[in-house]
């Protein structure tokens, strides 16, 4: 069996966690899902699995971990450049 490339943690999540570095242009086909990766994503980092609008909650482990500060497309890197915590942080 080939090594898993991403981890889908919870059915309600709109992100998945990359288990290896994944290059832009790769198509992930795993656990009955298919995702085209649009940016280079380092291992341990998150990719968007459902489109998010600005202000949408980012859901990991089935729980809200912050919100999108701009629209995020499926296959894009979800990190500090487009996500902010809801607490103890202020909008730029």
């Amino acid at each position: 069996m080939s090594k898993r490339q991403v981890l889908f943690l919870h059915p309600n999540d709109n992100i998945a966690v990359c288990l290896t570095d994944i290059a832009a242009g790769t198509t992930i086909s795993q656990d009955g899902k298919e995702i085209s990766i649009k940016e280079n994503i380092p291992r341990g980092h998150k990719i968007c699995t459902r489109p998010m609008a600005k202000g949408d909650g980012v859901i990991k482990y089935g729980e809200r971990m912050g919100h999108a500060t701009k629209p995020i497309e499926i296959g894009c890197h979800v990190h500090t450049h487009n996500v902010l915590g809801d607490r103890l942080s202020t909008e730029e």
């Binding site: 966690v17 990359c18 380092p42 291992r43 341990g44 980092h45 998150k46 980012v58 990991k60 482990y61 729980e63 809200r64 971990m65 912050g66 979800v78 990190h79 500090t80 996500v83 902010l84 915590g85 809801d86 607490r87 103890l88 942080s89």
Partner: peptide, 22 residues
């Protein structure tokens, strides 16, 4: 921001304090 999550946390892929806490 900048301290929590720490620079190391962020490099590791954690984006927010809530994510780290969960």
């Amino acid at each position: 921001r900048g301290a929590q999550p720490s620079r190391g946390n962020i490099e590791g892929g954690l984006s927010t304090l809530e994510e780290k806490s969960l």
